[in-house]
Amino acid sequence: MAEGVKPRVKAPSKAAAGEAVVLKTLISHQMESGQRKNADGTPIPRSIINRFTCEFNGTSVIDIQMEPAISTNPYFEFEAVIPEAGDLKFTWYDDDGSVYEDTKSVAIG
């Protein structure tokens, strides 16, 4: 696992049934593009988060395929429909095989 990787998620704790809510996510990650060279001219190998997914109670909200052109500390903002109480699950997939997860519960009210 890459060092200092920490996810942040902003989701409402409550929503009206059927409401579309705005979700924001950010994860600290270098997103090494593979285009850079170090001081002695050796290329620095690519090491990025290549996929991000969000699910609500197991059903897909969004699935994002990520390329090296996504900035360091990847940020996403998108919407989910909340038909019932349940859990939003956020998952980031690293090139090195690591998987980072976060979950937010949403109540109806």
């Binding site: 920490k6 942040r8 902003k10 924001k24 950010l26 994860i27 600290s28 940020y75």
Partner: peptide, 15 residues
């Protein structure tokens, strides 16, 4: 504070 990427590092600071 969510759009500010610096805040995730304040979170790491809290750890």
């Amino acid at each position: 504070d969510f759009d500010n990427p610096g805040m995730v590092f304040a979170d790491l600071g809290l750890d």
